[in-house]
Each structure stands twice: as structure tokens, then as C-alpha cells.
Simulated scan of single mutants.
Amino acid sequence: MIGKVNEFLANVKAELKKVTWPTKKDTYASTTVVIVLVLLCAVFLGGVDIVLSRLIRLILG
């Protein structure tokens, strides 16, 4: 059992050496894009919610 665990951990270590990790600049740029897109989606969905709420209130009186 311990031999299999050691083999697994050795394989994990070998695979992690093959990974191309993003640079700090890449990570910052990707994070910025995600935050901006989330904010844009939130504003859009909030606007749609407000418009539909007012439309339903207008229809229902």
C-alpha cells in the first residue's frame, strides 16, 4: 500500500514538472479580465431585472 502511495506521489511530482505555470503578468491580466466580465454581466443582469420588474408592475397595475 505504501509503495503505491509513493509511486503515485512520484508520478504527481513528475507531472507537475511538465506544467507550464503562468507568469505573474499573465495571472494579473487574466484576473482583471474575469473581474471586468463579472461586473459587466452583473450590471447587464441587474438592468434586465429592473426593466422586467417595472414592466410586470405596469402590466399588473
Rank of each mutant, 00 (worst) to 15 (best):
T20F: 02
R57T: 13
V48D: 02
M1V: 09
L16C: 04
G46H: 04
L52G: 04
I50T: 07
R54S: 08
I35M: 14
A42L: 15
I35F: 13
A14L: 03
I50R: 07
V43E: 14
V5P: 00
R57D: 15
G3D: 15
A14Q: 06
T32M: 12
L52N: 09
K18M: 07
G46W: 05
V43A: 15
R57S: 15
T20N: 05
A42W: 11
G61N: 14
L58D: 10
L55E: 07
L16G: 00
D49L: 15
V33T: 13
L9M: 03
V51K: 06
W21F: 10
T20M: 01
L40C: 12
G47C: 04
I2R: 09
I50P: 00
W21R: 06
V12P: 00
I59D: 01
V51H: 01
V48G: 01
T32Y: 10
L52M: 12
L55W: 07
N6V: 07
D26M: 06
A29K: 14
L60I: 12
C41Y: 11
L52S: 06
I2S: 11
K13T: 08
V33P: 04
D26S: 07
I2K: 13
T32W: 11
S53V: 08
L39F: 12
R57C: 12
V51W: 04
D49A: 14
L16E: 08
L37D: 14
L55R: 09
